[in-house]
Amino acid sequence: MADLLTMTDAGLYCEAGDFHIDPWRPVPRAVTTHAHSDHARAGSELYIAAAEGVSLLQHRLPGARVEGLEWGETRTIHGVRVSLHPSGHIRGAAQVRVEHGGEVWVASGDYKREADPTCRPFEVVRCHTFITEATFALPVYRWAGPDAVMADVVSWCQATMASDGCAVLLTYTLGKAQRLLAELAPHLEAPVLVHGAVEPLNALYRAAGVTLASTQLVRDTPVRGGVRGAVVLAPPSAAVPAWLRRLHEPQMAFVSGWMRLRGTRRRRSMDRGFALSDHADWPGLLQTIRETGAQRVLATHGDSAALVRFLAETGLEAAALGAVMPGASDADEDGA
């Protein structure tokens, strides 16, 4: 039997149902796992996404036609049953379950197994073939747990504020930023100062009922060195002198799973790095693959060679799902 999902020039494709999943070229029907720019590309005629993430997707793809599916709701496309299930990556991020002729495939999109106050936890979906992400697919990627990392973030922020400096947390604008604001909410009294790119997304999260720390735009503060003793949230691209001059003694920290390794922390020349990730770590990947009961695993995103070989040695049928996305860059915006 032909594979239910195959890799094509436009991305992952279901021939039986004539739809794509996270295509990187315009297609008639795009089932979209989440709103990060390496998964949600403009130009398709119709997007099908989790209802919980529709507002985020529309913000990222203005004017796009988006149909929302409730969690677990089944939509039949040319006889292929499609449903969406929480992946725990960011708000509205979904795994795509595809069933046809008694065979079940799940495309994970990006996922994590840790608790996140801004989105639903990952749901295990049993399947025959599991397409897993492999962003952090080496055993050295082991997260310390969000509580431990956040305790470090909070104590660093408090120490920096106490010395009158600004604790600048550099992070992805969609997902990680709101996760941090939600985690910080109980610990901070003063508002968190945010970059202009972050605030519209905060508004969408708040509108959906997620509690975030109160925020204020950095651009509404005095122009030169006026901000003292504050926590600041911004995308990495904002960390330029012209923008930082508003802040008194800015200390920079990057919040990303890549910060798990000293080498990447030092290469970024940051004052600090916090390994808080929206992706599964190595134990998380293995646990998930086991729990799906899949006999066949296809790995995509990142350096999947090690994961594939490891799974093959444990007796699973495993392969890399090839094809490099044109223009993809691993540091761009994947919520790592």
Partner: peptide, 12 residues
């Protein structure tokens, strides 16, 4: 081999 692959990612 997996320890080796990890070492090459970490560099230390």
């Amino acid at each position: 081999w997996l320890i080796e692959a990890s070492y090459h990612a970490v560099g230390d």
